[in-house]
Design a protein around this nucleic acid. Structure first.
Ligand SMILES: [Zn+2]
Ligand SMILES: [Zn+2]
Ligand SMILES: [Zn+2]
Ligand SMILES: [Zn+2]
Lengths: 149, 149
DNA sequence: TTTCTAAATGTTATGATATAACACACAAAA
DNA sequence: TTTTGTGTGTTATATCATAACATTTAGAAA
């Protein structure tokens, strides 16, 4: 059983644990993201499912499926690029925290990291000092990955 | 002479200082952003120029003008919302640094802040530890402003 | 099993954001 | 005045996303 199959099994487990259903189509979309290892647009996922899995899913459905997967914390949306990535912690036991992303500007690879809480706290302080309240410290940082530096 | 007119004069000065031209149309777009005080989309700026300034500028031109204004550091693009804001430091003398933004999720107001360099350095360290290289530390944070908390 | 219901998916239309390609206008330089 | 480059207009099209309504399907209730 390869990693992706294992991860999909974990994802299914996680959904079932609170009565949500990871259907075949939802699995197809999630596996597309897991396989590519990078961020893909909804329409790129339509293409992937058609070309690689021989599964036709209209764009509208892909958007709905992505919304479901986001809710389940199996997928995250990158707002800066309007693309979607599989969560890196699907197989982890710990509760999911607010994620931070390093996005390679050159090749599109994305790494989901946990930034030290102390740094986030300092950031929060900075924001409060400016008279605002930080709602979601999801950072999406423009980077270069090791291969592309 | 009100604040916006002053700021526009500063902007014109700044352009002239290196041979760039702040044309009437470019001024119209910039003044739209300055007047609104919040982030606007390109198409919202088309509407603003038509309705408030009686100046018809096609969307294509607004995009080109925004690209010009960004290059001049007079405007910044918020990637998370695909909107544009006037720079808060147009009238400042200091060189422009990479900006950070607090975006109110509720009312759309945007505050451009300078986050402490030490914090950004720590962030950079975190990113390097993850094997990536931070290219642009422009942060765009989802917040609530004082009015909306 | 059959019927009912809610969830999931399909279909069609449309809106919103953005860029490409080429034409035209106009101001500064030669 | 002619030339040249910059700015702007026009049209077409790509890309991202949602609304509204129809149909299918899975699971619960009868
Ligand atoms: Zn995650
Ligand atoms: Zn890369
Ligand atoms: Zn600025
Ligand atoms: Zn607000």
């Amino acid at each position: 059983m390869n990693d992706i199959v294992k991860t999909l099994a974990h994802a299914e487990q996680s959904c079932q644990s609170h009565g949500a259903r990871l259907t075949d189509k939802r699995k197809a979309v999630l596996s597309g993201l897991l396989t590519s290892g990078k961020a893909l647009s909804a329409y790129e996922l339509v293409d992937y499912c058609r070309d690689e899995l021989d599964t036709s899913i209209p764009a509208m459905s892909v958007y709905r499926i992505l919304a479901f997967l986001e809710q389940e914390n199996l997928v995250h949306k990158l707002h800066v690029t309007n693309k979607y990535v599989a969560c890196s912690h699907i197989s982890c036991e710990h509760a999911h925290e607010i994620p931070q992303f390093l996005i390679c500007e050159s090749c599109g690879n994305v790494k989901e990291i946990g930034i030290k809480k102390s740094l986030i706290d300092t950031l929060k302080d900075n924001v409060e000092q400016a008279g605002y309240h930080l709602k979601s410290p999801q950072l999406e940082l423009h980077c270069l990955c090791q291969n592309c530096v």
